[in-house]
Amino acid sequence: MSEPDTAEPMSATATDVPTTSDAVDAPLLEVDGLRKEFGGVTAVDGASFRVAPGSLTGLIGPNGAGKSTTFNCITGIHEPTGGTVRFDGQDVTGLAPYTLAKRGLVRTFQIARELSEMTVLENVMLAPPGQRGESATRAVLPGLREQVQEAEREVVDAAWETLDFFEIDHLAHENAGSLSGGQRKLLEMARVLSTDPEMVLLDEPLAGVNPTLEEKLLDRVDELRRDGLTFLLVEHDMDVIMRHCEHIIVMHQGQVLAEGDASTIQSDERVLEAYLGGDV
């Protein structure tokens, strides 16, 4: 894990790219020289970027650029081979997903992972942090269980509000497995937002979602940003990225190729070449 030669020159050059630091003075998320190797394949090769608090940052790149692996490394699903991840000023590299989620860094999955044999309402009620009834003794013992039920009523109310917000309240008592693809995406959003997060990593939240629903989801994201949430978005729909993200990070072959606002990215020739398959 910590072989002497993990600190390769790669990460040094990556941090030298000056584009981000002036854009983000006190980043909420700071990824520095992130590396992930699977056997002989290097999926992420020294990626470095920063995400400003309250922003909607887009992470784009052609297939195989390492976006999802980067997500997995940030959120603790994979342990990075090298590099650091800092969240809210603290080093969180390699922490378990539940530790990160408790600190306010959560994610959705590229392919919606609903808990299919639980109802939609149960899916959402699972998420709120610090539920007293998650202790087995409190759940069982007379006297303590009444307190659990007290707290549980608030969780139910909040869950219904969340379902209303995402307009899937009519499906509350359905098993999540019977939802359509788009509804599952909404459920994932609803669930992840019920964890009371500071920052949400969205992995292709719009794939398979119809245009009406897409607009709705993006409206929700804007609404939540006004409440102070930060989003990092992986998306293939360039139109959405260019219209909604104030900061865009382009990855290619496991590295950050370019960063900037929509116009900067659109005029960057390296980005065009990466997408069209030319050599950089």
């Binding site: 997903p97 408790k102 959560v106 992972r113 808990l115 639980m118 669930r191 992840v192 964890t195």
Partner: peptide, 14 residues
């Protein structure tokens, strides 16, 4: 129940 359904998701929810 959620561990039975998908442990990774459960962990990702804290």
């Amino acid at each position: 129940k959620s561990i039975r359904e998908d442990e990774t998701v459960t962990q990702s929810l804290g």
